[in-house]
């Protein structure tokens, strides 16, 4: 079997201990995915596994066998950015840029979760089919992604702008 990463087939590593994070960074040189703790506490390593967000540091590479992985490099490029990537620049949703790939990957999946009606801790109407993404909703849903530079306001604004565009 193979892991499909950004539309390329990759063989799973021989060493079963290799995390998806290290497979990406050290074996494939896809270093857009970042490492901030290696223990599930910061969100910097967030990637998409079949469209859902996962922490690649807590995912063994072999667990991704037979699945689709999308990393920040697979979302867009400097020349052709994903709408969220462009919105992050517009709203200055980063300073050092280290948490940024994880924030953007998490946001892509989060918008999908919200669109499918998945509630959060701050959702008032749990039966709703489609969540309205207030700033508070975005903040709660993005709280697994830490940013030490304090770009929170810009990140949340960037996501809200894209959420509005998608809803329109």
């Amino acid at each position: 079997m193979t892991i499909r990463i950004n539309n390329n087939d990759v063989a799973p590593p021989d060493d079963a201990r290799v995390s998806l994070l290290d497979l990406l960074r050290e074996h494939l040189h896809l270093t857009g995915t970042k490492v901030g703790c290696n223990q599930g506490a910061c969100g910097a390593c967030t990637v998409l596994l079949d469209g859902d967000r996962v922490l690649s540091c807590l995912t063994l590479a072999v667990q991704a066998d037979g699945h689709q992985v999308t990393t920040i490099e697979g979302l867009g490029s400097p020349e052709e950015p994903h709408p969220l990537q462009a919105a992050f620049i517009e709203h200055d949703g980063f300073q050092c840029g280290y948490c940024t790939p994880g924030q953007i990957c998490a946001a892509v999946a989060m918008l999908r979760e919200a669109a499918s009606g998945m509630p959060s801790y701050v959702t008032v109407d749990l039966a709703t089919e489609k969540t309205f993404l207030s700033l508070e909703e975005i903040r709660e849903r993005m709280s697994g992604n830490l940013c030490r530079c304090g770009a929170h306001n810009g990140i949340v604004k960037a996501i809200q702008q894209v959420a509005k565009e998608q809803a329109a």
């Binding site: 960074r25 040189h29 896809l30 270093t31 857009g32 995915t33 970042k34 490492v35 990393t71 920040i72 490099e73 979302l75 867009g76 490029s77 400097p78 950015p81 990537q85 462009a86 992050f88 620049i89 517009e90 200055d92 980063f94 840029g97 280290y98 940024t100 790939p101 953007i104």
Partner: peptide
């Protein structure tokens, strides 16, 4: 002005010390 390194940072192209092959 937007940051000059913005496009590289948001697309995972920005190279940090542990990213060098």
């Amino acid at each position: 002005a937007s940051r000059l390194d913005g496009p590289a940072k948001v697309s995972g192209q920005a190279r940090f010390a542990a990213d060098v092959a």
